[in-house]
Nucleic acid binder design. Structure first.
Lengths: 335, 335
DNA sequence: ATGAAAGCGCTAACAC
DNA sequence: GTGTTAGCGCTTTCAT
């Protein structure tokens, strides 16, 4: 019952640990017969190599860190699923961390990682993150790092994003074509790459379609739901917009709440549309038009790339943005 | 830039590695001055201890494995969040694994874990799991293991569950009190502890309220959505029930789909109710009556208990079931 | 209060 | 084809 080690196998078979180690690694220099014997005994005793010993020796851990701003957000949970699928395929382990959108938390997590605990890092930075030293520090230690969804141009590494500008442009045009003239844009965390790209897509679509940009209709919200509710409530009363474009899921849901409380009918009085991966969007009242990101695919790509990088494949895409297409799914809320 | 080790600190200060190690662990036997000097240099050089070396030495890793049947399911993503919160508080790391409801996958994961890679295991077994040897094997190696949500009585370890029997009983009574007489119970994976407890609650409530159990109304479904849809579709046509009680979330959503396709009005023609943690349940069409589990709380409890067990606190609850209350939230779908 | 040395379990360079 | 040996970086016993 005590743990089985190479040494024990060696003793039982009258061989050296080196031979055992080589055999289990399928080294070509080991006699086929001996190899067979060794493998069989290992199997019988249910030998599992001590990962710490081999990590210590080899300076690699077959482990990647996945750092996420909000684990229970459906988008991110799909990313996790994608990452896990690939990692598991390639015999990598995943350490998962939640920053709760806090820069301090993110910092303390990354600090632990420079110990070499992981071979690579996948991160979508917190809302609060603007100083990038902690990420640069990881890269300085030659630990591959990939940014996904939320990225920073300043960091010279692989970045995986959605086609946020285009999807936002397309969604805005959809609203315009549906006859909307006064479209509110709800956003959170102005500094975020995804936010600014989505905002730009929105503005460009307005201009291109002959509707000017009214800055009163661009509303920056916070992490405080109550405050957000009040803001949007006020906005609906003051501005009477004919559409709401929510740049993140929970703002779309909140818009439903606001409309309900004001007796405003969706889509009759105001159309609503939002970025969201909710698979029950079609069952909302009314069914919500969404821009759905390929979250799992993003996770899979991220995992594949980080593993390639770890295993030394030179990637000439180091500084490039990789884009994954999102999809506009039109439903009753904008009809 | 190369990794900083104890040895390097020792050389720079003209001390031995032993002293450095002790100082950084705040050993009382080290001179206060020396300690200060050492800590300062460690800070300056951003020293991070090599976790593999210390794990190898101490036979513990400050890491726990979290094995989940479906990572992207909202219930489980809340559990993950809860576990992460506590683990992070106590400086533990989490390795996350997804079984995709596959017994084979689960087996291969647990096999990796007997190497001592983790100090403890939290698991909610897959739908397919009935043989428990792989879990017993972990326990045999003296690795603490806790079951949550889905449990097996045969395993002599801590089990954390929801009050499934009572919540199901209560929900069924709610339907009966609302005038329903022909209540369908949709289930998946009969062998699951939660399923059988929920089913029992349903049946007992029927009997207690003078409505017999009609086995034709208890429908065992699978993981195949298309097949499930057909089954329920057929059922609605043949049996014309006045209520559907879905024992898992996606079966409730699917019931909405079926009703829509048949032009059956919820709640007028049939009332629908289901176990679910969807926070948009209130925005469905119609708003869905749910039994909501305290998923995050469950994760937090699981993490707290496994860490206590790892750290050697004797728990006299080893063989007991710990229950976390669920809540019935009545909404339009059953009114 | 500090140091020397052994050893956790494994890998790999170097013998033979 | 197999064995010997050194060493990854740390903790800890034993000595001083």
């Amino acid at each position: 019952m005590g743990k089985v080690t190479l040494k024990q196998l060696a003793e039982q078979l009258g061989l050296s640990v080196a031979t055992i180690s080589r055999a289990l690694h399928d080294s070509y220099e080991i006699n086929v017969e001996t190899k067979k014997k060794i493998k069989q005994l290992a199997q019988e005793l249910n030998y599992q190599p001590n990962p710490f010993a081999s990590s210590l020796r080899q300076h690699k851990s077959k482990t990647i860190a996945l750092i996420i701003p909000d684990i229970s957000n459906h988008f991110f949970s799909l990313v996790i699923k994608g990452v896990e699928r690939i990692a598991s395929d390639k015999n990598y382990h995943i350490l998962i961390y939640n920053t709760h959108e806090s820069y301090l938390k993110e910092q303390s997590i990354t600090k632990h990682l420079i110990s070499g605990r992981v071979d690579g890092v996948l991160i979508s930075p917190s809302l609060e993150t603007s100083n990038l030293e902690h990420l640069q520090e990881i890269m300085n230690r030659n630990i591959p790092l990939i940014l996904f969804d939320r990225v920073f141009d300043d960091l010279e590494t692989i970045k995986i994003v959605s086609n946020d500008y285009e999807s936002s442009y397309q969604a805005t045009e959809h609203l315009i074509h549906s006859g909307c003239k006064k479209i509110v844009f709800l956003l959170i965390a102005q500094n975020l790459s995804i936010t600014s790209k989505r905002l730009l897509g929105y503005k460009d679509a307005l201009v291109k379609n002959g509707l000017g940009v009214d800055e009163n209709l661009v509303i920056a919200l916070t992490n405080n739901d109550e405050h957000n509710f009040k803001m949007v409530h006020q906005l609906m009363v003051d501005q009477k917009p004919d559409a709401i474009f929510a740049s993140v899921e929970h703002l779309a849901i909140m818009s439903y709440d606001v409309c309900k409380s004001l007796g405003i009918a969706i889509p009759h009085d105001v159309k609503v549309l939002g970025y969201s991966n909710l698979n029950v969007a079609r069952h909302l009242n009314p069914a919500l038009t969404t821009i759905s990101q390929s979250a799992q695919e993003m996770g899979e790509l991220a995992a594949n790339l980080i593993i390639q990088q770890i295993e030394g494949k030179e990637l000439d895409i180091i500084t490039s943005h990789l884009e994954i297409k999102s999809h506009l799914i039109i439903r009753a809320s904008t009809l």
